[in-house]
Design a protein around this nucleic acid. Structure first.
Lengths: 215, 215, 215, 215
DNA sequence: AATGAATGAGCCTTCATTCAT
DNA sequence: GATGAATGAAGGCTCATTCAT
C-alpha cells in the first residue's frame, strides 16, 4: 500500500515485524519478509547483515516505540498514590502487550520464549521496567519481608499480565473469551485489585507468623 | 544406556522429548532425534507417520505421565477445605512444570507457544484441569460475581504459575534468582496466599460496589 | 551413459572429477556436478558432507589410481641403471599428468594452484614421490654437492614435467604445439636427456669451483 | 596511506592487484576490492565496465611494469655472449616472478592457470618474450636439430623458472626450503648451468644419433 | 568523477520424507 | 520391525551489477 512512500529499510522492518510475529524467528523466512516489503532479497543483508540482525533491529524498534507510547507511568496525575502507580504499571504493560498484537506479535514471542541471541538485548531493555515495579512494590510490601518474597510478588504480577497475551495458551484454549482492546482497562483493574489483595495477604501472613514466633 | 533393552519406538519417544524440549518444534531435526535414539531415520515415519505425529505423541505421553504423577489433588487428606484444594492445585501444577524441566521441556514450550496443530489435543488434555480449577474457585468466589470475573481470577492463578516456568522470560532475566526443586513448596504457598488474598479483594470490591449501587 | 549401472556415490565422484577439472574448485557448482551424475543435490552432503569433502575424496581417488597405474618405476627391468630409473620417474610423471587430461584435470589444477585445505593431503600423497626422486638423484649428483643444490635439481626436473601439463600456460599460448599422448615418450626422453645433461653440468661446475678453490 | 592523494582509479587498480593475487579471479570480490581501495562499489563498473575489465587492466599494468623494471636483457654489458644472454633471460624472469610475490601475485596465478578470457592478452604480452628466448636458443642449439626439439628446450627452461613461483606446489610442500629474494641470483645461476648442460646433452645426443645413422 | 541503495540470479546447505531391501 | 541410500523443495546468504543522484 505504502510501498512507494516509505523507504525500503523501513518497509523491511515493518514487514519483518509482521512475519516474525506470525511465524516466530525460525518459522519466518527472509524471502517472505522481502516479498511482503516489496524489496529484493539481498536488502536484508545490505541493511541488517543477517536475518538475526534484522530480527534484533525489529525487536529494539518495537520495544522502544511501545515504551514511548505506553510508558509505565501512563495516565498518572501529579501526585499519585502507590496503588495508582501499580495500576498504571499494570495497565501500561497490558497496553503494550495488546499493541503488539497482530503485526507486532514478535515482542510477545520474545517475552514468552526468548531467542538465545537476544537475551542480552532483552535484559537491557527490560531491566529498567523491573526496577520501576520493584520500587512501586517497596511502597506496598511490608519492609521487613525478605527480598525473595517481594520478588515473588513481582513475578506474580508480571505473570498475570503476560498470561493475557494473545499468544499464550489462554488465548487458544478458548475456555476464556478473547478480550477486546477496550476491555483492557477492565482487565487492568481486575489484575490490580487481585494483586493488591495478594500483597495484603502476604503482608498479613508475614505479620501473623512473626507474632506467633514472638508469642 | 538402555539403548538395547527398550524397543526402538520408546527410545524414539524419549529422545524426541529431549530434543523437542531443547530446540522447540521447528528447531528440532528428525535426524538429530534418530541419532540420539540410535535408530534409523525412516523409523519416525514408520511409527508416527510424521514429525508432527511424533511431536503429538511425545506431548500426550509427557502430559499424561506428569498428570498421573502429580494430579491436581496431590497430597490432600480426606476432607480438604477449599483453600487446601486450591493449594494442592497450584502445587501440583508447579510440580508438573518443574518435572518437565530439563529433559522434558517440551511441555513448557507448548504451554507458552502452542503449535497450531496441537491446540486441539492441548485443549482436550487441559480442559479437565481448568474445570477442576473452576470448581474450586466456585467455592471461593462470591457466587454473585459474574462468570467473567471468576475467569479472570482463574487466569491470574494459572498465569502466576506459568510464569515460573524455567523457560519463561523470568528465568533468563536473572533479576530473580533461579528456584530449586525443593523451593517449589515455598513458591506454591506464596502463590496460594497471594491468590487467596486476590480473590478476597475481588469479593470485597464486588460487595462494596454492589452496596454503593444499592445504597 | 552408465547412470544405471554404477552406484550413485561413484557416479558422483566421476562427475565431480570432470567438473572440478574443467572449472576449478570455486568455479564448479554442486548443482552441475549432481546434474551430470544424474543424482539429487542432497547426495553430496549425504556421502561427502561438503563440497569440500567431495573435492577431497575426488582428489585422493584420482591420485592413488594414477599412481597405481603409472608408478614411478614404471616399465623398469630387473636391475635398472640410475639413469633408467630417472627416465622411468619422469615418464611416469608425464603419463600421470596426461592421464588426468580431460575428465581428470583436477589433479593438475591442484598441483599448479593448491587449495589451502588440501595442502596437507597433497603433501601426504606427494612426499613419498619426492623421496623417490631424491634417492635417484643421490646416485647422479656428486655426493659432495650441498643438499640445497640437489634440491634445485629436483625442482628443475619436476618443473619441466609440470610445465607440460595441458593446463599450464604453455598449453594456451599455442606457441608450442599440443602434444599427443603417443608423444609422451618422446618428451620423456627429451626431458631425461636434458636433465642428465643439466646434472652433469652442475657436477662439473662444482668440481671446477672446488679445484679453483684448492689450487 | 595515499588513499587521499592518488586518484580513485589508481587506488582501485592497486587494491585489485592485491586481492586478485591473494584470492584468484573467482575468489576475489568486487566489494572487497572497493573496500580496500576506499571507493564506492559502482566505481569498478564505471571505470572498467566489468570485474573482468578490471582484471584485464590490472594484469596488463603489472605485466608491463614488471617488464620495464626487469627486461629480458637485464644487466647485460655491451656485447654479451649467448650464455650470458640466456642467464639474463632466466634471471629477469625469476625477478619478475618474485617481484609479483605478495602484493601482486596475480601474475603468477595467471601464468599457472590462465583465465580463458585473458589468453589473448596473455599471448600478446608473452609472445615477444618467447621470441627472445627462441632467438637465444638458436645460438646454442645445433642448427640441424628440428624445431620441435628446440621448442622442448625452451619449455624446459621456462618450466623450471615457473616452478619456482611461490604459488606453485613446490612452495607448499616444504620439502624444499623457501627461497629469499637475495637467493634469486643463486637460483638463476643454477637454472642457467642446468639448462646449458641440458642443451649440450641434447646437442650431443643428436650428433651421436646422426653419426650412428650415417655410419 | 563518484556514490550507495537496491536488485535478482545463483550458490551451498539442510531438512523431512520415501523407497527398495 | 527396521534400515539407509536417495530425493526435491526451500532456506539463508553472496555476488556482480545497475540506477538515481
Amino acid at each position: 500500500m505504502n510501498s512507494d512512500e516509505t523507504c525500503a529499510r523501513d518497509r523491511l522492518l515493518h514487514a519483518a515485524a509482521e512475519v516474525f510475529g506470525e511465524c516466530g524467528y525460525k518459522g519466518a523466512t527472509v524471502r517472505d519478509i522481502c516479498r511482503r516489503a516489496g524489496v529484493g532479497i539481498a536488502l536484508v543483508n545490505y541493511h541488517f547483515r543477517d536475518k538475526e540482525g534484522l530480527y534484533l533491529e525489529v525487536f529494539r524498534n518495537l520495544f522502544t516505540r511501545a515504551l514511548r507510547e505506553y510508558p509505565p507511568d501512563m495516565g498518572l496525575n501529579e501526585s499519585p498514590s502507590t496503588e495508582e502507580r501499580l495500576h498504571a504499571f499494570i495497565r501500561s504493560l497490558l497496553y503494550r502487550l495488546t499493541m503488539m498484537e497482530g503485526r507486532h506479535a514478535i515482542m510477545l514471542r520474545e517475552w514468552l520464549d526468548p531467542s538465545p541471541s537476544l537475551v542480552k538485548l532483552h535484559a537491557e531493555l527490560t531491566n529498567p521496567l523491573l526496577k520501576v515495579l520493584s520500587e512501586i512494590l517497596s511502597g506496598l510490601v511490608d519492609p521487613h519481608i525478605p527480598q525473595e518474597q517481594t520478588a515473588h510478588c513481582a513475578t506474580s504480577i508480571i505473570g498475570q499480565c503476560m498470561f493475557y497475551s494473545p499468544h499464550s495458551m489462554r488465548f487458544r484454549l478458548q475456555a476464556f473469551p478473547m478480550y477486546q482492546e477496550r476491555q483492557i482497562d477492565t482487565i487492568a483493574r481486575s489484575i490490580t485489585a487481585f494483586s493488591l489483595g495478594g500483597i495484603r495477604a502476604i503482608n498479613e501472613e508475614f505479620r501473623a507468623r512473626g507474632e506467633s514466633h514472638e508469642g
